[in-house]
Design a protein around this nucleic acid. Structure first.
Lengths: 258, 258
DNA sequence: ACAAAAGTGTTCGATCTACACCCATGT
DNA sequence: ACATGGGTGTAGATCGAACACTTTTGT
């Protein structure tokens, strides 16, 4: 959605291609070297940031739509996506001082008060995680900025997106040991130290270095290789990789422990 | 929604009061004396059953809407309601042989192909549990039947409602020890045997009678009374009741064990 | 030899599971 | 006294948490 024509089409006839009144908002977490961030965008001429989102094409499943939205902002395909909650309280999406006149001006289209985009919207929350060092965030046509924010230095967000982030984080942390969320965040072969740092960062707490490998190996999604890597003036660590077979099984079914 | 006028209003101008393209479907579980059932309705002149559902008023929160839908079918207010998943795959709601002509005939209103009701809909799933012996199910204006079905003798359901039931059951069972779901299903004062039967039935598996009370007491949501009840030619069991304070706390926050 | 990071094993307590017998009550 | 359902305790296994020292490597 880059040309003016596409923008006009979106406002004028978008309701034919998209399901109106329903949107998807994505909490896209980014990890790299012990840092956890989240991708935020703004809305042109509106003060404040929010989660990237979009509408659902009438031909897409919800997960496909979320995947497309994530890909549009990050360029990354096939991320693991999880629906976490749907938000629809009345007034959730109102922004002070944002109306159809302002929008018309910003986007160069005549937008009426009854435009499909102006109506009440219910939003389905999805979360995903990727490696933020490999991502060049791309704003959508409605926004000027699209940037990674440190998870514990977030500004207050627009709409009900503070609550969305809270729920997304909570769900991600609950699921971390039940779904193989970690792939894509580490190189194909990685050390115990690396995956340990990853889990500590995602969970936001310390994990005992001696218990951690036991747990991971017990879950069975990673396996030790007979290979070491040279890391300079230190003992060379063994490499590990994800067990693709068990990993893909876990993606579909979750890791069931009882 | 009982008079013809209300029905006309619903099809003609319902989109003004309700959020179009979004519905709520409720898996209403019913428990009584070791039986677990679920409430199903039909759609006039359509073969097959499905979950009761409805639209969201523009002034309601999602949970309020779900509560109203549950109340309309059961007469019970203030049930514990939990959102479990949102469903929106394209084609999820198509029924063979159901079109605007047939609907027009059934409801005595002219319904055009572009009526708001005919468009693609995304549905938010909620579950609730009540005591089915206290409920006289009421069909809605679209259906002739509204009945309790035994959970393990369910027919195949319309739309994607087989999957909804599966997900609802799964979520309910996961949450059973984390939310105080059991109230409303037992008399105010109840015996260990009664609550034991309840949990076995909801979980669909045997629970050791000697370990079970320890767990429940440990969770702290019930407390033993210094009272017994006479049950005929047998030893008189003690009575228990829910600890309202801890119960309400758990309703809001969930029961956190770690 | 030293600095830096990797790697590893054991103990303790908590929790879960399995299991069988005596008690209270009304007829 | 008997039939019926109510109620209770313990031992063993498993799981999770806590904890400190030795090994490897390059300089």
């Amino acid at each position: 959605m880059n040309t003016q024509r596409e923008i006009n089409d979106f406002f004028n006839t978008g309701y034919k291609r998209y399901v109106p009144h329903v949107s998807i908002d994505c909490a896209i977490f980014g990890y790299h070297e012990r840092q956890l961030k989240i991708l935020l965008i703004n809305i042109k001429s509106v003060e404040g940031m929010c989660l990237p989102g979009g509408y659902i094409k009438r031909t897409e499943t919800l997960t496909e739509a979320a995947g497309r939205i994530v890909e549009e902002r990050t360029g990354i395909k096939n991320l693991f996506l999880q629906q976490f909650k749907t938000f629809g309280d009345p007034g959730r999406a109102t922004v002070r001082g944002m109306d159809e006149k302002k929008l018309s001006k910003i986007f160069g289209v005549r937008i009426e008060k009854n435009n499909w985009i102006m109506d009440q919207t219910i939003s389905i929350g999805f979360y995903a995680i990727t490696d933020f060092s490999q991502v060049k965030p791309k704003p959508d046509f409605m926004s000027e900025f699209c940037k990674w924010y440190d998870i514990d230095q977030l500004p207050h967000l627009l709409f009900d997106h503070d609550e969305m982030v809270k729920e997304a984080l909570h769900t991600m942390r609950l699921q971390l040991y039940h779904y193989p969320i970690g792939i894509n965040l580490l190189p194909e072969k990685f050390t115990l130290t690396e995956i340990h740092a990853l889990y500590e960062t995602l969970l936001g707490k310390k994990l005992d270095i001696r218990n951690f490998p036991k747990k991971l190996m017990f879950l069975g999604v990673i396996k030790k290789l007979n290979e070491k890597i040279n890391i300079g003036p230190h003992r060379s660590p063994f490499l590990y990789k994800f067990d693709k077979v068990k990993y893909n099984k876990a993606l579909k079914e979750g890791i069931i422990l009882d």
